[in-house]
């Protein structure tokens, strides 16, 4: 009987503990988002982005925005587009190779290396990007300094493993009969891949790309070592310094001069939070609702 009552006590304790843990987690997350919204929502206005500049002339790059987030947002947007532009073709092709062509031994080695790349801290990737800059500066062109181009290349390495993995998993999870039908009807391996397998795996691949975009938009450590600066305006070329939203948040948190600047920092944090959560939600919906079945046999 004593054993039974101890057992009941343990059971109670576990249940109470789990509710407590859940409550703590939800409290923390409500505190984080609630605090940001409480402090920052009142800054949400066109002035947060464009400052005292006329929005139209800022968008047309006729006037530089000094007291708004526009240059940082433009920098982040360009950075994301360029990194994803590098990473998608290479990552998708590598994912296809891994899922469809690689044999046992090769696949094992590649898998290990991609796991390692995915696990590397982003500051290490940033350090690599910086040493690449040093190398190129010494051996290729003296004109090369930390800039948007090199940042985007370094960031591409950061997101490459995500894109490879999601492509690979999306392809490997396709049912065997879908895989065989095309081949049985005389399609070559590549025709089968492009006309049957890839269209069906598209949803998984797209959601992976969206998560990678989120990762690009939020990463600070890589760009810190490869060319982001606190004040540069909208980047004029891919070889110039640039501003970015996450770095702006980091910079403001330690270097703010007055309450006005700090308020902009809160605004930027909310903006980045919403952008990332939005991307996350879209990726989730795509993964859930668009199985992209060419053959509706299931």
């Amino acid at each position: 009987m004593k054993g039974a009552s101890v057992g009941r006590f343990v059971e109670r304790a576990i249940i109470t503990f789990s509710w407590l843990a859940g409550a703590i987690l939800l409290t923390v997350i409500c505190a984080v988002t609630g605090y940001l919204c409480f402090k920052g929502l009142k800054t949400m206005s066109p002035a947060l982005i464009f400052g005292s500049t006329d929005p139209m002339s800022a968008l047309l790059l006729r006037q530089r925005v000094f007291d708004g987030l526009f240059p940082a947002m433009a920098g982040t947007l360009l950075l994301v587009l360029m990194s994803v532009g590098w990473a998608i073709p290479i990552g998708t092709a590598a994912g296809i190779y891994l899922a469809e062509y690689a044999g046992g031994g090769t696949k094992k080695i590649f898998n290990l290396l991609f796991d390692l790349l995915a696990g590397l801290p982003s500051i290490v990737i940033g350090l690599f990007g910086f040493s690449l800059t040093l190398f190129l500066n010494r051996h290729v062109s003296k004109e090369l300094h930390p800039c948007l181009l090199l940042s985007s290349i370094a960031l591409a390495f950061l997101i490459l493993p995500y894109i490879i993995r999601t492509t690979q998993i999306a392809l490997e999870n396709l049912p065997v009969q879908n895989r065989l039908t095309g081949l049985a009807m005389g399609a070559t391996r590549l025709q089968n891949l492009f006309h049957v397998l890839l269209p069906q795996a598209l949803a998984g691949m797209v959601s992976g790309v969206l998560l990678a975009i989120g990762r690009c938009a939020e990463d600070t450590a890589v760009i810190m070592l490869t060319g982001v600066v606190a004040s540069a305006g909208v980047p004029r070329s891919i070889l110039s310094h640039y501003e970015a939203l996450p770095f702006y948040i980091f910079y403001i948190s330690s270097q703010y001069a007055d309450q006005q600047e700090l308020a902009t920092g809160y605004g930027a944090a909310i903006l980045l939070l919403f952008i990332c959560l939005f991307l996350f939600a879209v990726a989730f919906v795509i993964k859930k609702n668009l199985p992209c079945q060419v053959f509706s046999q299931r």
């Binding site: 980091f250 944090a269 980045l272 939070l273 959560l277 996350f280």
Partner: peptide, 9 residues
């Protein structure tokens, strides 16, 4: 999906 820098801030 919450950015690290937001946690830091």
């Amino acid at each position: 999906g919450i950015p690290t820098v937001v946690y830091g801030f």
